[in-house]
Write a protein that binds this DNA or RNA. Sequence first.
DNA 1: CCTGTTTATCGTCAGGAAGACGACTAAGAT
DNA 2: ATCTTAGTCGTCTTCCTGACGATAAACAGG
Lengths: 247, 247
Amino acid sequence: MPYDPSAYPPFAVTVDLVVLTVRKHALCALAVRRGEPPFQGQWALPGGFVLPDEDLGGAAARELAEETGLQVEEPGGHSAHLEQLATYGDPGRDPRMRVVSVAHLVLAPDLPAPVSGGDAKTARWTPVERLLAPEEDRGEASPGRLAFDHDRILADGVERARSKIEYSSLAAAFCPPEFTVGELRRVYEAVWGVALDPRNFHRKVTGTPGFLVPTGGTTTRQGGRPAQLFRAGGATVLNPPMLRPEV
Amino acid sequence: MPYDPSAYPPFAVTVDLVVLTVRKHALCALAVRRGEPPFQGQWALPGGFVLPDEDLGGAAARELAEETGLQVEEPGGHSAHLEQLATYGDPGRDPRMRVVSVAHLVLAPDLPAPVSGGDAKTARWTPVERLLAPEEDRGEASPGRLAFDHDRILADGVERARSKIEYSSLAAAFCPPEFTVGELRRVYEAVWGVALDPRNFHRKVTGTPGFLVPTGGTTTRQGGRPAQLFRAGGATVLNPPMLRPEV
DNA sequence: CCTGTTTATCGTCAGGAAGACGACTAAGAT
DNA sequence: ATCTTAGTCGTCTTCCTGACGATAAACAGG
């Protein structure tokens, strides 16, 4: 097969974002309401075209900043974890033309302002449990079935997040810079949708070298006895992994 | 940002393949010699354009069949495991134009014929250890530094394979349809580059429900005492995982 | 035929990790 | 003062793993 640059088939390349956070003990994803056809008025994942001189991660970071004001792993301001998720390119996934979308996964701490820094577009955090629910009636004001193949992309992103916190220290990306063991445990509980034993969880995370480093401070923001504050340690892999309880 | 289909930036979309197999106790990857510029005469990963009406996995399967004659998960003929790996789209990764490449990972059993069914292109199995070695002199006849960013793609694919056999039954994709525990163990040893205890390995894989199903037959093709033959069971995840020994 | 070699398979034992759960501590709320 | 809410330290049992001894069943060579 000759490799002829002048005869390549025409494609558009976009990035779509699965932005996850934990709010009120629930795993939530960011959805935006589409202003133009197709799927006008329906909810979708944030995203947009990759610019000619931009790499894929850069395009994702730019879209993230435009939609949420979140910075990717930057000091000052809020920071978030970003990684490539997967690429979706079925013919017909966009009715207008052939579009290949490189989906990215973003894990962010809960934001004080619901969605700040964005333009005028309507954006909203929605519990993934509701977004991924089968075919319920969910009212049109809150996101139901997402546009394009975004339901599948969201499901893949959620599954990636659920499995990745098992064997990495990524759960800390859902927490503020300093956090307690209990706050970290509530992240696991929200992402996995299970209850974990506080004592065994405490033993596990404090007993894994390099996972948590104490900052010396304490807080009572959760009520109850004051808890030690920690920062995420240098360890990025968790071995042995945190075990997700059976159903 | 208006979403204007008539003004999208021009991209070409390709698939590249990291095809891995185990031969002679070594993890090997498929490399092809390039016939045209750029990088003419240099070795690269097999790949090619995605056709206008083809999905990404279909393009990867087609390229695989063209290069190796391997069928993806098909009865009759050899079968192989195929999954999407990651997408590489840095500006400038191809000097001619903006090319976004969706890399796929293929795990295949060792082939009787080195590379069969392909066209006239030169293709060759090479131990990944040599392909990923730092900057050795490796002679020009055997693949050294790969073209484009294919060294990085290959490294990502190898790392994916190494980590994925820990917690899935994917190692069986490197084996013929019926195989012995010892053959499966040698796959793990080749992919990880370590020696495993035969007794503990046997206990682990035969003790995991659904991982292996005995076919009733035995074989002595490895020499020594006859070994039971197994097929891969339905279990796709391995919990608890097979532990990769520390270095 | 006997013996050494190779590979497969079963068993034993000690150490570590995880689940279940009791007990105590230290703050705010009533 | 007491209750409630979290956090933190221990204990005990069970399961899994790593290390390794021992036996079984084929083949090669004398």
